[in-house]
């Protein structure tokens, strides 16, 4: 009965969706609204107007810069929400010993988790991760810095960097990785994307009068590129720090 109801509901929902799909213009149609509105201008003038060879980056950071800034702030806020759930004791570290004990709801659960200690990491895997780490880091930096020329950018490079961090944490343990991402520096790293956007936005507001405004003069081409690269670095570092800390927080006892 319940299943039949679900199936009926799904069919009822799917009918308007299929009608909407049938009403869509054919794929690749040059006269469809998507291609006649703003994207024609982006494709024609994007390179000299936005200052990025990679059109996607141009749209993300220049034409739709405010949207990307908002997106970055949303991600940062989501991280804060996740931390509110994940953190069971203050992240301040050693000096908050008594508070930790007070906040720990069931002290009896500790021995059980100790008995399930993970097996030692294979030396082969450990060696491979440590061997590939410099190359991965180089690739991530390349993706971040080259985002305005080739596919890639802050989000992609940051995800690669964060993945490398997670692999290193699994292999080396939390303590050693914490030297790369100290507790005091972590919040600043997580907010790097927001800081970069606000800083560049304020600089743009001071020079051009618009928040996130880029200099449009052709002679200031390098300045514009530098502003984009700063934002990309901020997004990359912020993304990597967010991924790494979520993982560290989930792994932490």
């Amino acid at each position: 009965m319940k299943k039949a109801l679900v199936a009926a509901l799904l069919i009822i929902i799917s009918i308007p969706m299929l009608i909407a799909v049938a009403a869509m213009p054919p794929h690749g149609d040059a006269d469809s609204p998507v291609h006649t509105h703003v994207s024609a201008r982006y494709i024609e003038h994007g390179e000299e107007e936005a200052g990025a060879e990679n059109l996607v980056t141009g749209v993300l950071l220049n034409y739709r810069g405010l949207d990307t800034a908002g997106e970055v702030i949303v991600i940062f806020t989501a991280l804060m929400a996740a931390f509110a759930v994940l953190i069971t004791h203050p992240g301040r570290g050693e000096e908050s010993g008594p508070t930790t004990a007070a906040l720990d709801p069931e002290p009896g659960t500790e021995p059980e988790s100790d008995s399930k200690a993970p097996p030692p990491i294979s030396p082969v895997v450990s060696f491979m991760v440590r061997l590939l780490t410099p190359f991965t880091t180089l690739f991530a930096i390349y993706v971040i810095l080259n985002g305005h020329v080739t596919p890639g950018g802050g989000f992609q490079g940051g995800a690669i960097l964060g993945g490398m961090f997670i692999a290193l944490t699994i292999v080396l343990g939390e303590d050693k990785v914490r030297t790369l991402l100290p507790r005091r520096a972590a919040p600043w790293m997580q907010g790097a994307a927001v800081f970069a956007f606000v800083a560049i936005g304020v600089i743009g507001a001071a020079t051009t009068g618009y928040f996130l405004g880029y200099p449009t003069d052709a002679s200031l081409h390098l300045v514009r590129e530098l502003m984009m690269v700063v934002i990309e670095i901020g997004i990359g570092l912020g993304g990597a720090a967010i991924f790494a800390t979520i993982f560290l927080q989930m792994e932490a006892e």
Binding site: N54, V56, T57, G152, F155, A159, I166, F247
Partner: peptide, 20 residues
């Protein structure tokens, strides 16, 4: 661009977070 994000985030990091 989206493919790179999907490969790094979707196939990589989310899977690790799910496993944890």
């Amino acid at each position: 661009d989206v493919a790179m994000t999907e490969a790094a985030v979707g196939a990589g990091i989310t899977t690790v977070l799910f496993l944890v």
